[in-house]
Design a protein around this nucleic acid. Structure first.
Length: 259
DNA sequence: ATGGTCGGGTGCCGA
């Protein structure tokens, strides 16, 4: 089972590039972030006519997550539990039924800039809520994949120029500590485990020629429960997508599970 | 059009 995460930065803007990547990469499941669309205006037919099962959790203008799958999806949950007041569309879960059942969570973790400030407070509170949800799901002792745009640079080696990020919400010590607490629940950073070499990135800013300079960061992650890590066969970043026509500022990151 | 780049949805904000 090939499972990918891809921050597409707007479904309407990616309505050609996304289907092209799907056809070439042939994933079984894709967790999408920043669809920037309400559910009613998501171009469902483009994907359903191509054989995809689609579950969306959108909002007007910003954020929004979705799941595309070749396999049936069951028990869909929309929204990160733990705060009924939070209306931002940043979390979606479903169970994918293949050879094995795999619970997948697609997440768009808050950016948090500027830090300090209310946006950074929201980021840290959201990470605490995610920690509680991860604990609850890990207690089931089943294959679990938490995949998405974490807006976290885990270590200095995950940035081409870490000195540029020392005051940024993506790399502040408190951010990295919260991410580390997730890992310390027993989760595996699949890409780090399979591709330990530094200098591999999933995001390059549109500004200041970041792509041309390879001034990237690795912020899109797939974290695996022990039961999923046991099934891990491969993990890759589809870097070449960033050089395509009308690209997102993120590229797909994917794993292959024996499931 | 918004400085520098995009996207979405307006009549700038978020990233």
């Amino acid at each position: 089972m090939k499972i990918a995460t891809f921050n597409i930065n707007g479904i309407k803007a990616r309505i050609e590039a996304l289907p092209e990547w799907l056809a070439a990469a042939e994933p079984d499941v894709v967790l999408l972030q920043e669809i920037k669309s309400v559910d009613e205006s998501f171009p469902r037919a483009v994907f359903e006519d191509a054989g995809w099962v689609l579950e969306t959790h959108g909002q007007k203008g910003f954020n929004g997550v979705a799941i595309l799958s070749r396999l049936p999806l069951e028990d869909v949950v929309r929204g990160l539990p733990g705060d009924g007041e939070d209306l931002q569309a940043r979390w979606i879960e479903a169970t994918v039924v293949g050879k094995r059942a795999v619970r997948v969570c697609g997440l768009y973790l808050p950016n948090g800039n500027p830090a300090p400030g209310p946006k950074y407070d929201y980021k840290l509170a959201w990470m605490a809520r995610m920690q509680a949800r991860a604990e609850a799901l890990l207690a089931l002792e089943e294959p679990l994949v938490l995949a998405g745009d974490y807006n976290v640079i885990p270590q200095a080696e995950d940035a081409a120029r870490p000195e540029l990020w020392t005051e940024d919400a993506l790399f502040l010590p408190e951010t990295r500590a919260a991410f580390r607490r997730l890992l310390n629940l027993g989760l595996t950073d699949a890409f780090r485990a399979r591709q330990p070499a530094p200098g591999q990135y999933s995001f390059w800013d549109y500004q200041a020629g970041a792509w041309e300079k390879n001034n990237g960061i690795r912020i899109d992650h797939l974290l695996l429960s022990p039961q999923a890590a046991d099934l891990l066969l491969d993990a890759r970043i589809d870097k070449e997508v960033r050089a395509g026509d009308k690209p997102s500022d993120h590229v797909p990151v994917w794993i292959e599970l024996d499931a």
